[in-house]
Design a binder for these strands. Structure first.
Length: 490
RNA sequence: CGGGGUGUAGUAUAUCGGUAGUAUACUUGUUUUGGGAACAAGAGGGCUGGGUUCGAUUCCCAGCACCCCGACCA
């Protein structure tokens, strides 16, 4: 580690530009520093909005590619609906309008005059889509209808935070209609599992799947399920959600079909989504005080070959590096970056470390002489010398090892910081320390509100795999049949 | 939106009611090149708008932005 760089005292050099705020000192500042150092995003000159820079957008593209393929495999098709929604549509579902009213942006003027009816910039697309779905669906033979769209949405949030909560964000929203409640619920659960799979297999983020409490439910849903992840400071991040909407929307948007008996019936619906917030979660799960760490399976650049050599060697080393890069790309099918810029080695090393590239390969005259290359892991910093004819295999296995190691570290942290509390004092203490707290709760919104007022913690998840256990609510003392997860959240 | 804090160069900062300094980054040149190199030259700065003052980056007011704490949320 390079502590001396971070400490900016007399006598030591000022590397403040290069170093980032240590996590332990100020977690928020650290998070922003990582984003800045890696070149992922920056604040836009528009309130609460974010500019995603090319390197950050590459992560989003990687996410899109994997999820989109998975969605299609499960029968979902992509479509696109308008950005602008007539206000009357949004107002139709009571809970929905109530939930979103405070955060919608409304267009009142266009074409040089005031609009007869204001247009809402979509905060989500249930209303406009279901208005149209009612025309698309006539018979049970039209079901299930499985639609997804990749889009931007706008929510006028009070406290924006890069990636985690911005006024405009990119996401995917899936919307389905089914003939039975059971089918709809199965689909909602199925997509939840897709998110869990994606989080764990690709982003190396261990997650918790479960149901949301009444007060944390989506505006207009019958049931809300979610995938929750733990960040390095112990706070929870809602990674993705999936809702069983029941017939709440189909009844107001008249999404109905003729069943096999020839009777009119309202459709059973779901919606599910995940957003650029996942990138924020990715950063806060794996990165360190040197900058970003990307899990190999999501990294747009798998490895970087850094050339090292004095002027006399440069032409030769450059050529060798480029040849090696092409060879390795061909052998592994991975994106291998070759950095032969005329800079000092250290400068190049640090740059790619900040960007979180999983593996660095150092190539200089010594390595060329011995037909080898120095391989350095971003996650552990471990350095090994690898023979060039074994490089492709070693690189692939190392990338797998990094992927696994990142997951294991995150899993160990989640396990270690998930604790049981059986009384109010312990509960408060464990929440303050930044844990996921397993506690009994009487199940009422009132008690949840009291707990939130006192500790700022909420029910993050009622986990599916939680075993039944008799107990008493940690706050009210009333009986409870199982523990739920409480935590502070982003 | 409520409470608190901060706004000086790309970044981090110093000083100050009277010519704004340093480090680093950047540009150019020379020497360098296996973990943030050395020397020289160069370019770059007081959030915005009012007020007080002979004079404001400094003091006062407002706005805006950012950060922290709430309320809200993917």
């Amino acid at each position: 580690m390079d502590e001396e760089i971070k400490v900016n005292k007399e006598g030591s050099k000022d590397y403040s530009e290069k170093a980032i705020t240590p996590r332990a000192t100020d977690y928020s500042a650290w998070y922003l520093d990582v984003i800045d150092a890696a070149g992922l995003a920056e604040h836009a000159p528009v309130k609460g909005c974010m500019i995603i820079k090319p390197y950050g957008y590459a992560i989003w593209e990687a996410i899109q590619k994997i999820l989109d393929k998975k969605f299609k495999e499960s029968g979902v098709e992509n479509a696109y609906f308008p950005l602008l929604i007539p206000e009357r549509l949004l107002k139709r579902e009571e809970d929905h309008v109530e939930g979103f009213a405070p955060e919608v942006a409304v267009v009142t003027h266009a074409g040089g005059k005031e609009l007869e009816e204001p247009l809402v910039i979509r905060p989500t697309s249930e209303t406009i889509m279901y208005e149209v779905f009612s025309k698309w669906i006539h018979s049970y033979r039209d079901l299930p209808l499985l639609i997804n769209q990749w889009a931007n949405v706008v929510r006028w949030e009070m406290r924006p935070r890069l990636f985690l909560r911005t006024t405009e964000f990119l996401w995917q929203e899936g919307h389905t209609v089914h003939a039975t409640d059971a089918d709809a619920d199965a689909r909602a659960r199925q997509m939840l599992e897709v998110y869990k799979w994606f989080a764990e297999e690709y982003l190396a983020m261990p997650v918790l799947v479960g149901q949301k409490s009444e007060s944390e439910k989506f505006a207009g849903a019958a049931k809300t399920y979610s995938v929750e992840a733990m960040m390095q400071d112990g706070k929870a991040l809602q990674f993705a959600t999936s809702h069983n909407l029941g017939q709440n929307f189909s009844k107001v948007f008249d999404v109905k079909f003729l069943n096999e008996k020839g009777e009119n019936e309202f459709g059973w619906q779901t919606s599910w989504g995940c957003s650029t917030r996942m990138i924020g979660g990715l950063i806060m799960t794996h990165s360190d005080d040197k900058g970003l760490i990307l899990p190999p399976r999501i990294a747009s650049i798998s490895a970087v070959i850094v050339s090292i050599g004095s002027e006399a060697d440069r032409a030769r080393v450059t050529e060798e590096a480029q040849t090696l890069g092409m060879k390795l790309t061909a052998e592994t099918g991975l994106n291998i970056k070759v950095d032969v810029r005329d800079k000092r080695p250290g400068d190049k090393f640090y740059e790619w470390e900040k960007k979180g590239v999983p593996v660095r390969l150092e190539l200089g005259p010594k390595d060329i002489a011995s037909d080898s290359v120095v391989m350095v892991r971003r996650d552990t910093g471990e350095k090994t010398t690898v023979a060039q004819d074994e490089l492709a295999e070693t690189l692939k296995s190392t990338l797998e090892a990094i992927q696994k190691n990142l997951f294991d570290i995150a899993l160990a942290r989640k396990n270690e910081r998930t604790k049981k509390a059986d009384n109010w004092e312990d509960f408060k203490k464990l929440i303050d320390e930044g844990n996921f707290v397993l506690a009994h709760w009487d199940g009422t919104p009132e008690t949840e509100a009291e707990i939130k007022a006192d500790t700022n913690a909420t029910v993050r998840s009622i986990p599916f795999d939680m075993e039944k256990e008799e107990g008493v609510c940690v706050k009210s003392g009333k009986p409870s049949k199982m523990r739920v997860i409480f935590a502070r959240s982003y």
